[in-house]
């Protein structure tokens, strides 16, 4: 930049015109330097401020008081984002029993309490209306009310009703209840057990039933009152087992004699829900039979949960 021209008297364009003409030469370096300084300042400020954006224990305690005051049995309490769930359970875990924490899905809950931070929303609140919203420091408590699907028959909770057998080529082997499971003879891993399973790195309460090579593992509930829909969720339990093998598992559901194939379960399936429309037979009491097979059953810790709803 020629400073003499800028600061000296005419001749030539006016000083302001000179300034504007010289800007394109000097402005980019200045702008770049200014932008970098601004970035440094913003990053510094963010680093200093960010810790104070986290909810405090007092925020959590106040939010928990609010939820407790209006909580009703059967309500669902969730954290948003989901990674805050352990802290939520420190404060409200006594209202989140294992069967709720390990629920099949969120659809059976008519009232959902969402304890949210940083503007996050929980998927469990989708489709509902906000009946209450209140801030507690860095937390927001919302009560969402929505159309729920009442559960008529929970196949996991009613596991003791099941009649389990292993159907081989030449024979059918009956299994019997031994302590906390239904155990089939000859093969120690051939049982049905209600337990917490880890599918897709999330915990669910489900029935664990490993497939058996060259056989069908059949789990039959003799008398199920159907609703409008039968929801079945399937997946493979245990991250190490999913790593150990690649075999797939098939499940077929036979509802009152009508078979229905479910999607194939593989390592990548996650927790797959299938909705079977039973509207036409709602109210009827029928046998429901689950059949599990696998062409490569090694390390396939197959888990499923099911509910007759509506």
């Amino acid at each position: 930049m020629d400073n003499d021209q800028v600061v000296g008297p005419a001749p030539g364009p006016t000083p302001s015109a000179m300034n504007s003409r010289s800007l394109p030469r000097s402005a980019p370096p200045l702008l770049i330097a200014a932008a970098v300084v601004l970035l440094a300042l913003v990053e510094t400020a963010a680093a200093l401020i960010a810790p104070s954006r986290a909810p405090t224990d007092a925020d959590w305690a106040a939010a928990a008081r609010q939820v407790r005051a209006e909580f009703r049995p059967g309500d669902l309490i969730v954290a948003a984002p989901a990674w805050a769930d352990p802290i939520l359970r420190v404060h409200l875990g006594d209202l989140i029993p294992i069967e709720v924490a390990g629920r099949l899905d969120d659809d059976r809950f008519a009232r959902v309490w969402e304890v949210s931070q940083r503007g996050a929303r929980a998927t469990a609140t989708t489709g509902g209306t906000v009946a209450l919203e209140q801030r507690f420091g860095r937390l927001t408590v919302r009560r969402i009310e929505r159309q729920a699907e009442p559960v008529g028959y929970d196949f996991v909770a009613r596991w003791a009703d099941a009649q389990v057998s292993r159907v081989e080529a030449a024979r059918t082997v009956g299994c019997r209840t031994v302590a906390d499971r239904i155990q089939c003879p000859d093969l120690s891993f051939n049982f049905v057990h209600r337990q917490i399973v880890e599918v897709d790195n999330r915990l669910r309460e489900a029935l664990l039933a490993q497939p058996v090579g060259q056989a069908v593992v059949a789990i039959e509930y003799p008398a199920v009152r159907l609703g409008r829909v039968l929801v079945v969720a399937t997946g493979l339990h245990d991250t190490w087992m999913r790593k150990a093998a690649r075999g797939t598992v098939e499940m077929r559901v036979i509802v009152g004699g009508q078979p229905q194939a479910l999607p194939t379960t593989s390592d990548d399936s996650g927790w797959t829900r299938t909705r079977i429309d039973t509207t036409a037979r709602a109210g009827q009491v029928v046998p429901v039979r689950f059949e599990i097979t696998s062409p490569a059953p090694y390390a396939r810790h197959f888990a499923f949960a099911a509910e007759a709803r509506g």
């Binding site: 294992i98 924490a101 390990g102 917490i196 880890e198 790195n201 915990l203």
Partner: peptide, 9 residues
């Protein structure tokens, strides 16, 4: 996650 399930159980 599986370990947390064992704690619950």
């Amino acid at each position: 996650a599986k370990y947390e399930g064992w704690f619950w159980e």
